[in-house]
Write a protein that binds this DNA or RNA. Structure first.
Lengths: 203, 203
DNA sequence: GTCTATACTGTGATAGAC
DNA sequence: GTCTATCACAGTATAGAC
């Protein structure tokens, strides 16, 4: 609380590292169980079993099951920010092509892991709402998207609203009605052309 | 099971009517509680209390809580079919205008009752999946949509897929990010124009 | 400071009396 | 057909062993 961190240096880090490692172990196991049994279906006893702990011991690391969801939510968005930033330099100069690549990055990230998509975009967990801290990476992502659109020469914020609705709408349909297929995936570029024409982007 | 219904006529109907009335009473109360406390948050004890029954008595009318969701799901889609059929004769001759009205009908129905939208389009209830019978009105709706698109002169089934993704995507964003506002509602006609241009509909 | 044993509360669901 | 009583199992709280 006071000057604990400087008391005697190296010891402290080991403890913190072990704690962080256990937290990560819990979250990793939670993702696997969520994909396996469903996001809301796995129990804390399942989760504890998966990493060789007793259920109450989880409370040493997380205040509640919702706190675990919260960490997963934050991680999902952080991963998406990371993927997006990695793609940023790769975006084509040509605005229309750039739009298509950006849409594909979003779409693929969503379809690649439907459970993660559920947690990030739907309110699937009864009573769960992300904390402000966990919501932060999501806001960060909006900034990145806004940046991409500025580079496109677009100034109307409504354009970004529409783009978000279209791409997430396509991803949602793909996940809900043709998981593993390409029924909507195949149409994504067409939709992007419609959008590009609509906001007056040059060919 | 055998010839019970014909045993002595009038008596039988009264019983059936009372049963149907109670079922309706349960479902109506469930919708109110769902809007009030959340779709998954209301308990069977809440529901029973609301209509002056004990929780176990609900099992006389529904086999499980999921069976209640199932009936709500079916009713939601049946209502949407009804609303759509009522609009069908009112659709403008002009294809583009017709598209916009149809989109508005879908969008307004979704936004008007977010909880119903959740149940109909998202998998918000852990473990709940609609029964084939309850899913039927949803298929009926697809038929109606296909009929509308045929009247537009559209033959490519992918066009309807895209249209569905766009309109539901817009509705989802409106519900999730600006409930009660018009941020996406105001852009719906623009999106429909983009779509109409994209599939080559005349002005 | 980490984990275990035990127990509490609220949930959907069932059994049997009336 | 509705009741009372009760079940199994969920998330969660706490006391104490090491």
């Amino acid at each position: 609380m006071t000057d604990v961190t400087t008391e005697h240096g190296p010891r402290r880090d080991r403890v913190a590292e072990r704690r962080a490692a256990t937290r990560r172990e819990i979250i990793d196991a939670a993702w696997i169980l969520a994909q396996d049994k469903g996001l809301a279906e796995f129990t804390l006893r399942d989760l504890a079993d998966a990493i060789g702990l007793r259920a109450p011991s989880l409370y040493t690391h997380f205040a509640s099951k919702d706190a675990i969801y919260d960490a997963m939510f934050a991680q999902g968005w952080a991963d998406f920010v990371e993927v997006s930033l990695a793609w940023l330099p790769e975006l084509p100069e040509q605005p229309r092509a750039s739009l298509k690549v950006a849409a594909r990055v979003f779409f693929d990230f969503a379809v690649e892991n439907p459970v993660r998509y559920q947690l990030m975009h739907q309110r699937v967990i009864p009573g769960f709402a992300p904390s402000p801290e966990s919501y932060a990476p999501s806001l960060r992502m909006q900034e990145i998207a806004r940046h991409i659109f500025e580079n496109l020469g677009t100034t109307d914020p409504a354009d970004l609203d529409i783009w978000t609705a279209l791409v997430s709408g396509m991803a949602h349909q793909q996940i809900a009605n043709d998981l593993g297929g390409t029924r909507w995936s195949d149409q994504l570029d067409r939709v992007m052309d419609m959008f590009a024409d609509g906001i007056g982007l040059p060919h």
